[in-house]
Write a protein that binds this DNA or RNA. Sequence first.
DNA 1: CTATAGTTTCAATAGATATTGAAAGTTTAG
DNA 2: CTAAACTTTCAATATCTATTGAAACTATAG
Lengths: 196, 196
Amino acid sequence: MHADGTPPPGSGYGSGRLGVDPEAEVVESVGRLIEFWGFKRALGRVWALLYLAPQPLSAAEIGDKLTMSSGAVSMALNELQLWGTVTRAHKPADRKEYFRAEEDIWKMVTRVLSDRELREVDSACETFQRAEETLKEQSHDAKERAAKEEHSDLDFRRARVGYLRKVATHGRTLLKGLILTSKLDASPLRLLNRKN
Amino acid sequence: MHADGTPPPGSGYGSGRLGVDPEAEVVESVGRLIEFWGFKRALGRVWALLYLAPQPLSAAEIGDKLTMSSGAVSMALNELQLWGTVTRAHKPADRKEYFRAEEDIWKMVTRVLSDRELREVDSACETFQRAEETLKEQSHDAKERAAKEEHSDLDFRRARVGYLRKVATHGRTLLKGLILTSKLDASPLRLLNRKN
DNA sequence: CTATAGTTTCAATAGATATTGAAAGTTTAG
DNA sequence: CTAAACTTTCAATATCTATTGAAACTATAG
């Protein structure tokens, strides 16, 4: 199938507008989405390319199609593998490594949510909690020193930090619920499907 | 109230470990969180500072406390205002502007979710849909041309893009549900509170 | 073993993003 | 009106992040 690197540039297909390569569009779209989600765009592009490939691809092929340097490809593949989103494969009489995409997208999403977002939120919760404690003490002390103004300021802050903590905790609960549900039935979305 | 810019560096409070400024910790924590969420850290820091302030603050005060330049403060405040997270205020006989934080955090979250995340997901959905269409046509054409190999490849891609679209659509639904719920009852978290 | 194909590493560099601060702009008191 | 107080803009610059590509490394065939 067109042996060299030359893809058929719309080689006389029937109806669709020529010059639009759906594969490339999807690759770029996933790239953007993944970047928006806080990863490097390259990760999204590589993963998407693999996800759309009927057969595993070699590093070289990936570099070609996405015009990335060998180094960039290697790094991206490593990072993707760390996140469990890409696996290595070997073809029998071939020295090269081949790569395929993990196909269960929800598994990946869930993984990231628990390994990254949840951690982040947890850490914020802790900070807020600590801060609230400290402010509570300080406010208390100020009261005893009859430092009225200072007391009420500290108390105001304490209350606000308290609300921050509450919101963060709620967010945490929501995240955990999402993760749990999606782990249980691989369709986390049921949450809202009942009647909404 | 300590007139110059010198904050009392743990001026003999009672119990808490000295040298820990809970306000600063919260400010930095929110900064990190907001950066993690795809905004500039400065936005989070400024908003948090205002949120914790019992009284509106002037741009100068903000710059001081966060050691940011006047320009940076001005820009951050503008952007925050665009997102509806900070409002301007004026004290009677004072030429300066003062700023206060929007206090309804869920309102802000909801706003961002619909103005930014939802848009992003929508756009991805559209791309996937278009790509699926095109692939469907191409696959069909290949079949007619009896290009077996090409047909099955295209068909494979079509199926995968279809799944991508499905996932994205689900995500979109989830997002919309979240937004809706939180708009309705200001406590979007109820979703999971029933028994989970 | 050596030669070769393939892969990874990492210092250098390109590129993107954030920040500064002085100049220009705006507002208000007088 | 002008001067003073304050705010905004934006070109210059610093900082952070991603990418390159050649050298080092690894694995295999012969």
